[in-house]
Amino acid sequence: MVDFKIILSDPETGRSYKIDAADPAARALIGKRIGDEVDGSIFGLAGYTIKLTGGTDKTGIPARRDLPGPARRRLLLSEGVGFHPVMDGERRRKSVRGSEISADFVQINAAVKQSGAKPLSEYFGQPEAAAE
């Protein structure tokens, strides 16, 4: 049984929405790569096209788009996903995961590439106002 948390960002409104993808929808994502576009009807979002932008595994290790395969590796990084240097020229060996989505992923980040007929707020509801 595979479950993913999908964080869907809407660049038009600047809001993010959380989708809990259970077994059938989650299995449709296994084998896809970061940067691929998928049909939104998998998650019940008719007419939407969704681009996969990133993800993390169960221990919080991020996935890099430029690393093939689903495996976890320790790389010497100087910048980019997984490491942000503080000093000029700093490098550090960090664990990162490949770009292919596997059952080890827990969270998948995604963005709306093409909108459907209904806005996302109709699918997920309006956010509640913060209590003061």
Rank of each mutant, 00 (worst) to 15 (best):
residue 50 I to V: 15
residue 51 K to E: 08
residue 52 L to R: 10
residue 53 T to F: 08
residue 53 T to M: 11
residue 53 T to H: 05
residue 53 T to Q: 10
residue 54 G to T: 11
residue 54 G to K: 04
residue 54 G to R: 07
residue 55 G to M: 09
residue 56 T to C: 04
residue 56 T to N: 03
residue 56 T to E: 14
residue 57 D to H: 02
residue 57 D to K: 02
residue 58 K to M: 07
residue 58 K to R: 13
residue 59 T to F: 01
residue 59 T to C: 07
residue 60 G to T: 08
residue 60 G to Q: 11
residue 60 G to N: 06
residue 61 I to T: 15
residue 61 I to S: 07
residue 61 I to G: 00
residue 61 I to D: 07
residue 62 P to E: 12
residue 63 A to V: 02
residue 64 R to N: 04
residue 64 R to A: 03
residue 64 R to L: 01
residue 65 R to S: 14
residue 65 R to F: 13
residue 66 D to W: 12
residue 66 D to M: 00
residue 66 D to G: 04
residue 66 D to I: 01
residue 66 D to P: 03
residue 66 D to Y: 03
residue 67 L to C: 05
residue 67 L to N: 02
residue 67 L to E: 07
residue 68 P to R: 00
residue 70 P to Y: 02
residue 70 P to W: 02
residue 72 R to M: 10
residue 73 R to Q: 06
residue 74 R to K: 15
residue 74 R to E: 13
residue 74 R to M: 04
residue 74 R to T: 08
residue 74 R to W: 07
residue 75 L to E: 12
residue 75 L to F: 08
residue 76 L to E: 12
residue 76 L to C: 06
residue 78 S to I: 07
residue 78 S to H: 15
residue 78 S to F: 08
residue 78 S to M: 13
residue 79 E to W: 12
residue 79 E to D: 14
residue 79 E to H: 14
residue 81 V to N: 03
residue 81 V to L: 07
residue 81 V to S: 11
residue 82 G to L: 09
residue 84 H to V: 11
residue 84 H to I: 07
residue 85 P to M: 12
residue 85 P to H: 05
residue 85 P to L: 10
residue 86 V to K: 15
residue 88 D to C: 09
residue 89 G to L: 01
residue 90 E to F: 01
residue 90 E to N: 04
residue 91 R to S: 10
residue 91 R to C: 06
residue 91 R to W: 07
residue 92 R to C: 04
residue 92 R to Q: 14
residue 92 R to H: 12
residue 93 R to Q: 12
residue 93 R to E: 13
residue 93 R to K: 12
residue 93 R to I: 10
residue 94 K to Q: 14
residue 95 S to W: 15
residue 95 S to D: 14
residue 96 V to E: 02
residue 96 V to H: 08
residue 97 R to A: 11
